Structures are given as C-alpha cells and as structure tokens.
Simulated assay, not measured.
Amino acid sequence: MKQRILVVEDEVQIAKVLKIELEYEDYEVHIEHDGLSGLENALGENYNLILLDVMLPKLSGIEVLRRLRKAGSHTPVILLTARNTTLDKVMGLDLGANDYVTKPFEIEELLARVRSSIRYHSSIISWQADRNEQPKISIKDLSVNTETREVTRSGESISLTPKEYDLLVYLLHHKNKIVTREGILTNVWGYEFEGETNVIDVYIRHLRKKLEDDSSDPLIQTVRGVGYTMKEK
C-alpha cells in the first residue's frame, strides 16, 4: 500500500511541483490550498505525513498544527516556511512540528526529510508491535508512555517538544549503553544533518533542564568525546 501525504500549500505552482515529485517517488498525494480545508482533511483522513505551509489563507499553518496536536493527532508534520521566519520555526517546533524546510528549497532535501520523518514514525510503531509489551519505558523515577507520549518524573508531568521527546525515547531505548553523537543524528534527525553541529548539545541541555531541574540525581550523563548515556545506577 502506498504511503499517503497531505500537502497544504496555497501557491498552486509549488503544490503542483510537490505533487509531481512526490508521486514520482511513489507516494499517494492529496492537495489542499487553504488552512481550513487542510485541517478538515487531516482530521478526516489517515496520512503518513503532512507537508504544511505556514502562510495560508483562512487558517495559518501554525494554527492548523496547534489544532491537530490538540485533537491528538501524531501524524508527522513538516512545515514549509519563508527563509526569515525564525519565530514561526520555533513556534512550530514547540507546537509539535517534526521538522521544517525553508523556501526556496531543494527538492532532494525535502524528499530526504519526508523519508526520514515517515521512517522514524514507522519505526516507533513497529518497535512497539515487535516488542509486544506495555508501551512504557522507564529509568529510575522517569517514565514515558509511547502510546500517549506522556512523560513523567516522580509522578509529575513534563512537557517536551517532539524532537526533545524523540531524543529522550532514543536514549531510553539504549539505556545503560553509550550512544554516539553520530548515532543520535542518524536515528533521531534521520538524515545527513547539515545544520549547526551543536544541535545535539542544545537539545540535551533542554532535556536536562526539563527532566532534572534542581535534582541531585542527573539522568543524562556526558561521555566526553563520545556521546551520552542514561544509566539505571
């Protein structure tokens, strides 16, 4: 069965090019040209991925994303943003976007990110099915429910962005082992990352702040020159 992608893009020519390129890669593609119809379609149909423009008529892409996540949708979303809209990128990631691509974009980069997002989302679902176990993973007093994406420590709920959550789950799946920076980039970001090289340090710092705060029992340990680890003891 073909993987299905929803493209919500008001620029007709861009939407047409995306449809041609994605269908050439053997995806099934549906197009919507405004935020309201895009939201309705996203909530009414099952998709493997949504390509969502930020600047849309009737309902902005950011608002579409907010309502999708509020409705409980975990479908991967890649935002299509203008080059200088840093605030939109940050807000989008905080609201639950899985990735973003700036316009004008190289189609090969976009396709790589599409493959990455779909692959990672599928791997999480497959991992749960293959292990045939309770959807909870934990270490010490930290617990993650991979079905509801709820993260708690000592019973207190912790709010994470999608990428912070993905990073935490990857670390937990490899607890008591050392994971390299290269392994994190490949498996969490899922493509040949070409952004700032300190992106992992930034996300680790955010995770530590949210998970550990003033705790005297740190969960994430740095292995200098190699990577990171989470140990039971």
Rank of each mutant, 00 (worst) to 15 (best):
S122G: 02
V188Y: 10
E23N: 14
D130W: 14
L167D: 05
L168G: 06
S126L: 11
D217P: 02
D217Q: 11
V17H: 13
T81M: 14
N48H: 14
T161M: 04
L22E: 07
N176S: 11
Y170R: 11
Y191R: 07
K209R: 15
G61S: 10
V90D: 05
M91Y: 08
N84Q: 12
V151C: 04
Y100I: 02
S126C: 02
R115Q: 07
L87D: 08
E196T: 06
L111Y: 00
E108C: 00
E25K: 14
E156F: 06
S126W: 08
D88Y: 10
T180I: 08
K70Y: 05
V144N: 03
E11Q: 15
K231Q: 08
E194R: 14
L36K: 15
R181E: 08
Y228F: 03
T180R: 11
L160N: 03
V179R: 12
Y228Q: 01
I50T: 09
R153Q: 10
L51F: 02
K19Y: 09
E109D: 01
V7P: 04
E232T: 11
S157F: 07
N198R: 07
S116C: 07
G225K: 05
V64M: 10
S159G: 00
S154V: 11
V8Q: 00
K89R: 14
V17I: 15
E194C: 06
G227F: 00
V29L: 10
G183Y: 05
E156K: 12
E194F: 07
G35W: 10
Y100K: 06
T152Q: 04
N98T: 05
H33F: 07
D94C: 02
T146S: 11
V90N: 05
T81S: 14
L167H: 06
P135A: 13
D88T: 08
K231Y: 06
H206F: 09
K103S: 08
T229S: 04
D214E: 14
D217F: 04
L36I: 09
P57K: 13
D53M: 08
M230I: 14
I139Q: 12
R115F: 00
L79S: 10
D53G: 06
S216N: 11
L110H: 01
V54D: 09
N98I: 03
P57Q: 14
K58V: 14
A71L: 08
L93C: 01
D217V: 09
D217R: 11
K2Q: 13
G155P: 12
A112S: 09
N198F: 03
E109R: 01
R66C: 11
K103L: 08
A15N: 12
Y47T: 08
G96H: 02
K16G: 02
A112T: 03
